[in-house]
Amino acid sequence: MADFKKIEENLKKEAKRLLEAGEVTVVLAYSKGFDEKHPMPYAAKSVADIKNIVFNEYCNHNMARYLVRYPQGTKIAVAVKAADSRAVIQLIQEEKVKRENLVLLGIPVYGMKNSKTGEVIDSKTTSGLCNPVLYDILLGAEVHGQKIVSPYEVLAEYEAMDKDARWEFWKNQLDKCIRCYACRKACPMCYCDPCFIDQSKPRWADKAPQSPGNMMYHLTRFHHLAGRCIDCGECSRACPVDIPLYLFHKKVAKECEEMFGQAAGMKLEDKPVLVDFRVEDSDKILE
């Protein structure tokens, strides 16, 4: 397990320095919630707020989610774990935020836990990474020597399923959906407002939480995140009925990586794969 106390100290220290120096106007990190298993995303805006900052193994929230909420040009420091940093990179690629307005407080971690189940969820959500891909300041020692698990390893079971069984699996899962839209709201890459599913012209699907509308919403959302999903698992974690949306996103991410040779949020200079093409793209991808 990462040294969470140390990270928390460093987080406070850096937040204090940045706010005092006026380098940023807000530090996006975590504060305590109603109990210790439920820390909350937190926006520290003054030195007085810093005492509220915490960091522990339940600080799963992808803080990149909040970046687009602040007006363009706001100087923001943001605590980034591996997946969060990928989200930041992806957002920069998509020109939603500018690199020069961000101070990335990198947090290398392993041993993050699901607050509902207590289960360690690194392999499910951090694309096999422990260290942030991009950061300005590192708040803890880089993690090395962890067992490298392919982020796509969890897919094997589902890929091996018979197509009918897989259909049954997804239908049952997606039928549970209550259309609270926590998945899209928790997703750092879902910044559309309105979302396509809220449109009345065209009405892509029924608003009622029943199979056809749920299917349309989720399948399309998987598509909208194709090549953009940075595998933070926030969609699944936010879901009150525990639909394993991250599995589907992972699968699409895997396919995109195989077809287009690029994973989301790894390089600042990349272009999102579905608004890009290469002349050497082959028809093989359609097979």
Binding site: M40, A43, H61, I178, A182, R184, A186, D206, K207, A208
Partner: peptide, 24 residues
């Protein structure tokens, strides 16, 4: 500041009653 503006709290709530009327 942390609120995602999703609908979880209202949907799980026993006393939230807002609804929409739609034609399908």
């Amino acid at each position: 500041s942390a609120c995602l503006s999703c609908g979880v709290c209202t949907f799980v709530c026993p006393t939230c009653y807002c609804f929409d009327i739609c034609d399908d």
